[in-house]
């Protein structure tokens, strides 16, 4: 099993509902976030293009954050999801520095936190909160090992890219372009 997410930059409007829904679902403290939205504009008026991306932890297959964690708090869980066990985390912040995507933050309660793909929801057969909330339905979640999952299907049909592939982290967040 390999959980992954594909996000359609052609449909995303940058509304940040993914961010707010994550914040309420996971009690992310005010002032922090597990996901965020980036908008990139290219060109000069009126020859312009915009790409909008809802970003979060890439649940990398080859994660520097897991590798560098001295206590084993950062680990791979079911479906390749990278998790942090709060009571094992000493808050050293090595993982924050090692992540090329800046996907982690130091939670005010003294541990490092990040996107969990809402594993507590997946276990109940629900989609991650951001995927379920997105008004444009531009996010697809599922198991890459299942060729019929939504995410496998859409990756077959559409052109996509990953972020900073050259870092060798084998990210599992796919952006449809």
């Amino acid at each position: 099993m390999r959980y992954a997410m594909a996000i359609d930059t052609k449909k995303c409007v940058g509304c940040s509902d993914c961010v707010v829904s994550c914040q309420t679902e996971n009690d992310v403290p005010i002032g922090y976030c597990r996901d965020w939205v980036v908008e990139v504009t290219d060109g000069t008026y009126p020859q312009l293009e915009i790409e909008i991306r809802s970003e979060r932890c890439n649940q990398c297959d080859n994660s520097p954050c897991v590798r560098c964690c001295p206590t084993g708090a950062s680990h791979y869980a079911e479906g390749g999801i990278v998790l942090v066990t709060p009571n094992k985390c000493i808050g050293c912040g090595a993982c924050i520095t090692s992540c090329p995507y800046d996907a982690r933050y130091a939670h005010p309660d003294g541990y490092v936190d990040k996107c969990t793909f809402c594993i507590h929801r997946i276990k109940k057969g629900l989609e991650p909160a951001c995927v379920a909330a997105c008004p444009t339905k531009c996010m697809y979640f599922g198991d890459l090992d299942d060729p019929n999952s939504k995410v496998s299907e859409v990756l077959k049909k559409r052109k996509w890219k990953t972020l900073i592939p050259e870092a060798g982290t084998e990210p599992q967040l796919y952006f449809l372009i």
């Binding site: 940058g14 940040s16 961010v19 005010i30 002032g31 922090y32 976030c33 996901d35 965020w36 939205v37 980036v38 908008e39 990139v40 504009t41 290219d42 060109g43 000069t44 020859q47 293009e49 909008i52 924050i96 800046d102 933050y105």
Partner: peptide, 19 residues
Amino acid sequence: MTSRRDFIRISGLGMGGLA
């Protein structure tokens, strides 16, 4: 056609570190 790139994080204010 890229002549200037305007990169902006439109949400997620609290994340430290990233430009």
